[in-house]
Design a protein around this nucleic acid. Structure first.
Lengths: 213, 213, 213, 213
DNA sequence: GATGAATGAGTTTTCATTCAT
DNA sequence: GATGAATGAAAACTCATTCAT
């Protein structure tokens, strides 16, 4: 509707292609991990390989775009839920959303587990997610729904951990992650335990990629 | 007859090379994941590429050997700790061992997270680990140190999950996993919570690799 | 299945490259046999290695395409000559064509002499050639130009045999095969000899490749 | 010249190993062609790979030794049969022997069909075989059992041709070559035909291998 | 802007040959 | 002399990326 510029057909096409491409790439990365060939992504999107490179300068960029998409979705979810009255329920919902998003995605785990992330944009988004999760978590702490030494970054990290716990069961039992989410929430709620060792991570201090050589 | 006689030199060299190779491969897989080229492993070991294939018929076999090595170590640990008097302490020690082993290893995560495992030997070892962990866990349950609906397979799965939780911090804070281990143990100890959803996994029902096509 | 491309005649460049490739491969296989490296074929064609695999999914497929090309040419020749009045002359011409085609080709001999052929397409083409040759041979038998117990498959097999007979002379005397063609034709014409031992082959019963193991 | 040296036991072992090796290599080359790995030959012989290279400086040399063995056997056969009264029968027997020897051997065909033979020894043996066959053939010509313009070299070349003719049938019908031997003999016997084209080959003028590059 | 053909570096794997024991 | 471990030069094949059409 808003896109009324000079070559409307072309522009609309590009937008449409970009959407098709992102959808196809999301699905392909999710199912097969980061090693899925660009050619397969293009094919799933009904596009030619060259078109992928017109939209994204490299495969790494495409992957980053998808990660950002997922992360933005989670940031949104955290922001929204930070307004909720029942912080405990809100935290559960956020974490369920988060694990479910990850559960569908092999590539995310592969990317997140790397000692260094290539894309500054992804690193930033993860940090923004931590901030958003901290807002949510702070309220839960205040309401006594979560122990005092748990941070938003802890919560974000737990998303990956819960997903990974259930990952080997994923094929046979797609909902198994709910079991481990509850287990984690029970752990988060414990108040009479010894304080957790190791200082709470306040921000993910993700390293720059190492210099080549 | 025994391995002391005849040609000690040659044999010793080969044993040494095999050790170098396994060490190099363990480190390389750990740092870079399963996609690390054989050539790099060979170089790290100070060997030629061909030598790797003299020791292991394929890259897959080499990877399996390393996974088996790690798994056997954990099975051993579980068996030993199942004899301990204090089941709670034994469980903590087992899990600490397990996470530490995994903490060093990207490849393990990638392999374990796959929908299907190629090597029957690795699948078997994982199942044996679950059995060994169940013995340990059963005693902890009996002693009231662990909630009633937690199985050995849960415990094994949690190893991967705890590692994954801490993975993004690994480079900057190598000991961060201890925090999440305690958090998980606190969750495991909770007795007044709602029962966990989803049925407990009794054995990892890892699928055979899908038929080609 | 053998040929990868979809849209015909799109790129003039591609068609040209494909032709160059087939010519180079034909020559290379002919001179050096099936073990000629793909890299050399590519180089002769002025292409990169990868381009060969864009046109043919595997070396086996490329080889099959060339074999099929040759076989189709011979089938054509047989079909055309089956219309001729003078069956004896037609048979000589067919066999001369056939030997000359083979004479240039080491790979053909190696492929044809194998206990099993990998490509169903090539097996089929050989059988079709036998059928076409039988039509030609039948007329020659009827005209008394060929003894009664000779089949089209005999004739096809003789092409390879005549070529092989002359092969060691090929470099020094490229036309030597004509000598052995006449000798074979003289044998085929003999009528007062004892009947040939061993039953005539009616179709080449080329086995499927053996199962792996 | 005489071998009367110190360690007779060792010598006996070497002789035995050489025999085992030649037998294994003959069988392996016969079944699988020249591309059979040295390792398989060694294994069949119950020897180590290194031992093969103690006996033969290269794979090419081993192959040459086996070819020479086969050729010597045929030369012997020709010499013996040249004494026989019935030259026609003798020629048939020689050719039957020859084809049968080849029939069992994929490697021979691959070697003989090459434009150039690497080993002077093999070239010489082939030429000696031609001489021996010529003696046999001369008698057959004199007795009118073979047309006048056929030479011993023709006969030798025909061995390969007859084998090649039957080769595609070899797996299914191991005796099929007899059919084509008779056909060839019938051709050789024809006396009322036009003289064969192309001059008779008197000696195989096998080229030296081309210079590298 | 889209296409997909071409490229070539990179990967696993094989195997003749060498050489230390 | 025998052994077989080590080597390294190919080989087939893949795939991100570039570029002519």
């Amino acid at each position: 509707m808003t896109e009324r510029t000079a070559a409307p057909g072309q522009r609309a096409d590009m937008v449409r292609n970009r959407r098709l491409l992102l959808e196809a790439a999301t699905a392909a990365f999710a199912e097969q991990g980061v090693d899925v060939p660009i050619g397969e992504i293009a094919q799933r999107a009904g596009l030619a390989k060259g078109t992928v490179f017109r939209h994204f300068a490299s495969k790494e960029d495409l992957l980053a775009a998808i990660m950002l998409q997922m992360l933005d979705q989670l940031i949104h979810s955290a922001d929204r839920l930070a307004q909720a009255d029942d912080a405990a329920a809100a935290l559960r919902e956020f974490m369920a959303d988060g694990v479910e998003v990850l559960a569908a995605d092999r590539a995310f785990c592969e990317v997140i587990g790397r000692p260094s992330l290539q894309h500054a944009g992804v690193r930033d988004a993860i940090n923004r997610l931590c901030v958003a999760a901290e807002a949510l978590t702070a309220r839960a702490r205040e309401q006594g729904a979560v122990r005092g030494d748990i941070t938003g970054t802890d919560v974000v990290l737990l998303l990956g951990g819960i997903h990974q716990t259930a990952a080997p069961l994923l094929a046979a039992e797609p909902q198994a992650w709910r079991r481990y989410l509850e287990l984690a929430l029970d752990g988060l709620r414990v108040t009479d335990a010894r304080p957790l060792p190791h200082r709470p991570p306040d921000r993910l201090d993700l390293a720059d990629p190492p210099a080549l050589g």
